[in-house]
Structure formats: C-alpha cells, structure tokens
C-alpha cells in the first residue's frame, strides 16, 4: 500500500460533504423515529404489565428472549418478509428499543414508594388518577434512564443496517472498509459517537427539566 492512508482527512470531509450529510440525516431520522415509536408502544405495554402482575412475567420474559437475538439475525429474518430496507432496519430498531423501555418503565413504576401511593389513595384518588398524578411522575427518572439507554444503543445499532444496505453512517463505514480508506471509517465512527453523545445530553437535560423535584436528591 503505497498511497497515504490517513486516519483523518479534511479534504475527504469537504469532498464528500453531501454523502456525509445524507448518511448523518438517515442515521438521526432512523434513531428518532425508532425511539419515538418504541416509546409510544412501550408505555401502554408497561402499564398493562404493571396492572396485571401475571402478564409482567410474560412481558419481561419475552423481551429478555427477544433481546438475546442478535441484530444481524433479526434483520436477516425481517428483510425477506418485509422486502423494504428502511422498514426492516426501523422495525428491528424499534424492537430492541422497546425491550429496554418496557423494562425501565416497569422498574420505575414498581419502585414508587408505596407510602406515596397509599397517601394518594387515602386522599380518595381513583386508581387511574393515582397512576397519572402519582405513579407515572414518580417513575419518570427511570423512564428517562431507559430512554437514554435505548437511544444510545439505537444509534450504535443503526450501523448494523449495512447488511440490508440501509445503515446510516454505517454505510459510510462500510464504503471505507471496502476501499480500506481509514479516514472515511473514522469520520463516520466519530460522527456516530457524536450523535449518541448529543442525544444522551439532550435527553438528560429534558429529564432534568421534567423532574425538577428530583434535582436536589443527587
């Protein structure tokens, strides 16, 4: 290999600005969409599991089993059925994010101090009202932790989408790999880490804003 193979090249970034922007947008959109859908599905699922303890064993068990399935295998099974690259990756990402979220929402709901729930019941609140005004707000810190965890792992997981040819920044990594060009792989990797970091900080901030009462505790 006589040609120079730098770890980073500004010239590469400038020459490939469009490709990088496309991959980055694809990556961010996939992540946001996947986590949003997962959150919408996870909340009612966790609530049902919380209300019916018998179901919660089933939900936790199933999610544990599904979580063990590697992403490559999941994409492999989904793609031939769905026949759409974007949908395949999106559905796979939603499944994994869903599992993390359901678990964390359940943990949060279960961790609510029974004395607080009792107090609300003593004030004559209905179960529904207790859920929305006492239990869910108290579970919020745990939900935020789940959201952060799900988002960060989703960002990393998007790259596996290269097996079906829709992997956001992973696509750039793969191109860099096939041409053995380091700068492209490293640029895509650093951008992936940056996306994860920014998302994590944003969610952390949102969590702090949403739970002003929890700030003093830590």
């Amino acid at each position: 290999m006589g040609a120079p193979n730098p770890w980073f090249s500004w010239a590469y970034v400038q020459a490939n600005r469009d490709d990088i922007t496309t991959a980055l947008t694809q990556h961010v959109l996939l992540t946001v969409e996947a986590v949003a859908i997962a959150a919408l599905v996870a909340l009612p699922l966790a609530l049902v599991a919380f209300r019916h303890p018998r179901l919660s064993g089933l939900v936790i068990g199933t999610s544990g089993v599904l979580y063990t399935v590697p992403s490559l295998a999941l994409f492999a099974v989904l793609y031939p059925v769905l026949r759409d690259r974007r949908t395949t990756v999106l559905v796979g990402l939603v499944v994994y994010a869903l599992l993390v979220l359901v678990r964390n929402v359940l943990v949060g709901l279960r961790g609510v101090d029974p004395a607080v729930t009792d107090a609300a019941r003593g004030l004559g609140q209905s179960p529904g009202r207790i859920l929305f005004t006492v239990q869910l707000p108290n579970a919020l810190p745990s939900v935020v932790v789940g959201l952060r965890l799900a988002t960060v792992s989703t960002v990393a997981l998007v790259t596996i989408g290269v097996v079906v040819g829709y992997g956001g920044l992973g696509q750039l990594m793969y191109r860099g790999f096939t041409s053995l060009y380091r700068a492209e792989i490293v640029t895509a990797t650093v951008l992936t880490l940056a996306v994860a970091l920014v998302a994590d900080v944003l969610l952390w901030l949102a969590g702090r804003l949403a739970t002003p009462w929890a700030r003093g505790r830590r």
């Binding site: 790259t159 793969y174 380091r182 992936t192 994860a196």
Partner: peptide
C-alpha cells in the same frame, strides 16, 4: 462502560481491518 455502548462494533471491526 455506559459510553462504550455508543461505539458501534462494526466501526471497530472495519478500523481493525485497515
């Protein structure tokens, strides 16, 4: 150990390859 979640395995594999 939490931050390491964000690093895609694939990236590491590709970097190793070069």
């Amino acid at each position: 150990s939490n931050t390491s979640r964000a690093l895609p395995t694939l990236a590491l594999l590709f970097i190793f390859a070069t």
